[in-house]
């Protein structure tokens, strides 16, 4: 389903940590070697010595191919990572609700999101709220955000979603595998409760 902020933060931590470890390894290795360690007492040698250059020149074809492959892999990783930052939970535009001989039937996700938002706001304890249809690879899900009115019970809002909002959305799209995530914000105690 949709990726929560926590999920995004976890993947950021993993990828950035791998990058950090690579940088530490490269810098640490270079530093140790420049100080005469790692079994290379000849620290007076060039960073790119003649032997290495000759090897690269001799196998220029596959070295160039491998380097291009690695560079493109790095670029793809960058694209994947950047996309996750910008679109952590990509909105869905249309949801397929039927696929038969006569053609394909789909539902406008915007209309469903509006209906879901209306159902969410029907809960007594919700001051403001918004529903979105998110997902990847044909598995749509509901991403709901609601502000719980001062004095209201967050669990009651959740029960309302489980008992009314989600079943109605499932019926609308004809999919019982539709799931929902609800992000609740407790209203500022100074705010007036919605009666």
């Amino acid at each position: 389903m949709s990726e929560t902020g926590t999920g995004l933060d976890s993947s950021n931590r993993v990828v950035a940590s791998i990058l950090g470890l690579l940088l530490v390894s490269a810098g640490g290795y270079g530093l140790v070697r420049s100080l005469g360690g790692v079994g290379h007492p000849a620290r007076a040698g060039a960073l790119l010595d003649g032997g290495l250059r000759a090897d690269i020149a001799e196998h220029a074809g596959w070295v160039g191919g491998a380097a291009t492959f690695v560079a493109l892999l790095v670029a793809w990783l960058g694209w994947w990572w950047l996309r996750r930052q910008l679109l952590p939970a990509p909105p869905v535009r249309r949801i397929a609700v039927g696929d038969g001989r006569g053609g394909r039937t789909s539902l406008d996700a915007g209309a469903l999101a509006e209906a879901v938002t209306r159902d969410l706001l029907a809960s007594d304890g919700v001051a403001t709220g918004r529903g979105r249809i998110v997902g990847r690879n044909g598995f749509p899900g509901l991403s709901l955000t609601a502000e719980v009115a001062a004095g209201a019970d967050p669990q009651a809002v959740r029960r309302h979603v489980a008992d009314h909002v989600l079943p109605r959305a499932r019926t609308a799209v004809g999919r019982q595998d539709l799931v929902a995530h609800l992000h609740l914000r407790l209203a500022d105690p100074g705010d007036r409760a919605i009666e």
């Binding site: 929560t4 979603v161 989600l166 799931v179 995530h181 992000h183 407790l186």
Partner: peptide
């Protein structure tokens, strides 16, 4: 406890 709805609080 909310059926199939996962939930969190800000």
């Amino acid at each position: 406890g909310g059926g199939e709805v996962t939930a969190d609080l800000d």
